[in-house]
Amino acid sequence: MISRKGLISIIRKYPIYTLIIIILLTLPIYAPSFFVIQIAYGLIFGITGLAFNLLLGYTGLLSFGHAGFFAFGAYMMSLPIRHTGIVHTLEVYLAFAFITSAALGALLGLICARRTRIFFSILNLSFGLIIYSFFLKFWGFTGGADGTHVPTPPLLGMKFAVDKEYWMTHIYYYYILAAFFICLAIFWVIVNSNFGKTLQAIRDNEIRAQFTGIRIYRYRHIAYIISVAFTGLAGCLWAPLNGHTAPEIAWWTYSGDIVMLTILGGYQYFIGPVIGGLVFNVFKIYTIGYTVYWMLLLGIILLILIFFIPRGLVGLGISIYNRLTHKKGSSKG
């Protein structure tokens, strides 16, 4: 357990993160339901971004197929329900989605982990499209373009006798928040582990890594499995929130969204995809409400980011923070 003194020191060291955590914890108390739901979606996209960024930021592999893996995870909840008619507690589906996604990652990784750059990207795009086609065309099994309904599942074995809105904005919101913090902690450990450094070494110099005795394909493969497994897990968390799974979530433009949110937040930073996930979703939803040209706006913002703030929102925040603290220092003399 962290002592009171330790907690105060953490708060002082990371005031912005502390503020974000407090906001996330208290959000359902004061924020409108719609906004709380959007943040819940944002947290799920944050998990997706973390999983995606294990490949992009830490292994140097850009995937254009992660929407396929996200959809795969979502369908791993909706399909068993569709075919058995039984609704188990959500943890059963989370475990099932995680294991099957890991198996999918292990299978596809046999091919993908041996490719880099454009070949890796296009291979993933192709696999994503195959997954999309499968969910779209095998309508008897998947529900086709109509998709599949996802009922509200029990959480931790408990059924809640509340209306859907309250369930989403309070009960499921905190469930997602807890899952998000667990995933965040797991990814933090992974990127700061021996394995995480090995991935960064492979990213920086494949030949040197090979001549340092690192089995590059093996570790790329493991990173790929982890990334696909957690993306699938995020998809499974998303399914009850959305209440419905349809093939379009596997469509390549959604893979583009995952790339965008990661760049928006800043792929060089651990927390970048999380901030990107939250901001991207809120921005997207609210601009859709205001204008049909929301994609144009998003495109312009991304162009600004790439040309002027290549380190993303987190990089921008750090620059501003450093400049402010520098000014403070200089005023002190």
């Binding site: 450990v189 700061n192 394995f195 450094k197 960064q200 990213r203 005795g213």
Partner: peptide
């Protein structure tokens, strides 16, 4: 060399590889 890593991390990656610890996922470096 591993350009994006510090000199310290370049060496640590090599030592980890030599000691066959490079794949430990839950071992903080």
């Amino acid at each position: 060399i591993f350009e994006g890593l510090s000199a310290f991390d370049n060496i640590r990656v090599a030592i980890n590889s030599r000691e066959r610890k490079e794949g430990k996922i839950f071992s903080l470096i």
